[in-house]
Every structure is written in C-alpha cells, then in structure tokens.
Write a protein that binds this DNA or RNA. Structure first.
Lengths: 146, 146
DNA sequence: CATCATTATATCGTTCACGATGCAAATATA
DNA sequence: TATATTTGCATCGTGAACGATATAATGATG
C-alpha cells in the first residue's frame, strides 16, 4: 500500500494524539480546581491581562468566537469570569476575572510544575524543549496563515 | 505573574493548537472524499489491515471504544465500513471495509502529498521531520503509559 | 452447574470545535 | 440623513472526545 497513507508517516496523527494524551494528563490536576483544559487556557489569557474582549481571547487561542462564547458562558456560570457589554462599542463583550477567578491563579500555580514532571522524557528536556517549541511555533505560524 | 502559567511556556497549548490547525488544513481535502479527520484515521487503520476488532482500532489510535463506536456507526451509515459480530466471540465486533471503503484508498492517495506541501515550513523539512517524529513518538509512548 | 468476575462493546451526558447562519451595533457610502 | 456594509458576538447543528455507566457474552471459581 501507499506508504504515505500509513499512520506511522503522519505528523498530524502524532500531534493529534500527543495533544489528546497530554490534555488527559492535565485532567486530574485541573478538575481539582474546577477547570477543563480549554477553560484553563482562557484563565491563563486573563491572568496575563484581565478585561479582554471575546475576540482578543479567541485570537490569542487561535479559536473562533463561536467556540469561545459558550466556553465563557460556562465559566461565568461557575463564577470565574464576568461578561459585560463594552462602554464605547456596544457590540463588544468585555470578559473580566471575578475575585474567585483571580484567586484561582494561586491554586493553579502548581499545575505547570506537576505537569513538567509528567511530560519530561528522554526526548523532551530543558535543552531540547526550546527547539521543539520553536518548531511548533513555526508550524503554528505557518498554518494560521493558510 | 508566574511565568510557568504563561501561554508561551506551554507545550500542551502548542500541541493543542498545532493539532487543531493542521486538522483544519486537512478539512477541505477530506470533505471532498466524504471523511472527517478521525474517520480518515480509521480508514488508514483499515486500509493497512482490513477486518479488525473495534478494540484493535481504538488501541491503534489511542482512543476509547466509546469514541470509536459512534465514529464507526457514522462511517457504516456512509457506507465505508461494515460491522459484524465475531464468529467465535460474540462480544467482538469486526469492522471491515466495503467496496466503497476500499476504493476510497485511491482517492485518498493525493491527500498526504497535498498536505506535505501545506505543512512544509522552515522548521519542518525532509531532514528535520524524522527527529520531530521521534520526539513526538517518545512523548506519546511516555504519556500513554501514565 | 451456579455464581461471580472479566471482557468487548454500547449508551448517556457534558464539553469542546467549527461551519453556517443570525442579529444588532457601528461605520461607510450615497 | 437614509441605506448598505462591516464588525462583534451569539445561536444552531453536527461530530468528536471522554468519564461514567450499562449490557451481554465469555471465562473463572466455588
């Protein structure tokens, strides 16, 4: 058979699988603090810079607003964020952290460290990680312009 | 703020984003032949080896059967595969290609080549791809044993 | 042989992703 | 200023993922 159609020659399958498995590894840590992985990403965006528009968050995460909107509604229902209409531009929705959402940053602080241990393997070390990051950033930059 | 909680220091976010964007790049090619990306993965498993159990397919793709079962039912409804109870073991379900499913392999042959061009970038070339594959395989092997 | 545990798959509920579409606010144009 | 276009977000429908649970067939144990 055509070797190009073999699973072992697929970059996409590797990325898809690695992404799913690493997200699964996050699950027990994140469920302790009441977040899903995509919600954790939104929180990181807001911890870095509170009070952003839906579109800003979506762009930062390379997602569409139709994915982010329901995500934010669930997070608002959980009391992590507040959504309010923009003052100057009535179309915009500004998302800001609640005190509960701000406080969660401390509880989340241990997550990257615990995950660092889980991810560390022969191929991914302090030395090799930057190169891998650069490769993935290059790929993401390339794909996001297609 | 804690730099470990910054998006730019996250391996998982890069894998998640790269996986989504590359899957999106597959979309126009796959929709032409009537497949979604996960369905394309199942087809690759079956083209390589027809007549496998649900569990074999799930294991090969690092998925759970509760993901694969509905996937296969949709693929059966589309006429790509046939599901039949195992002869010796009545619990097993054997998945085999229909003529339509087998014929699809030829139509899918162009997909990897077209995608190769879309993925090629400074960081991912004929020389660097094997190293990246090995790193991801190592990570996947590591994570799948957690 | 009866009962219990295991295995293989399926069902259910929730949360993403995302294409397509809708809608209202803002802006551009006539 | 009326109309058309664009922009920002939301809604809808479908297809994954996946934890939890169910069901039926097989295998093991008493």
């Amino acid at each position: 058979m055509d070797p190009a159609l073999k699973l072992e020659n697929q970059l996409c399958f590797r990325l898809y699988t690695a992404s799913r498995l690493i997200t699964q590894a996050y699950h027990p840590l994140l469920s302790k603090i009441g977040l899903t992985y995509p919600q954790y990403l939104v929180m990181m965006v807001l911890w870095e810079n509170d009070g952003q528009k839906v579109n800003d968050i979506a762009k930062r995460l390379y997602l569409e607003t139709n994915t982010v909107t329901p995500l934010l509604k669930r997070m608002e229902a959980e009391g992590f964020v507040k959504r309010s209409r923009g003052a100057e531009d009535g179309r915009q929705v500004i998302v800001s952290l609640t005190p509960k959402g701000r406080k969660l940053e401390q509880e989340a602080g241990c997550v990257p460290y615990k995950m660092g241990g889980a991810v560390a393997c022969r191929s991914i070390t302090q030395e090799t990680a930057p190169g891998l990051f650069a490769t993935l950033d290059d790929l993401i930059g390339h794909l996001s312009k297609l």
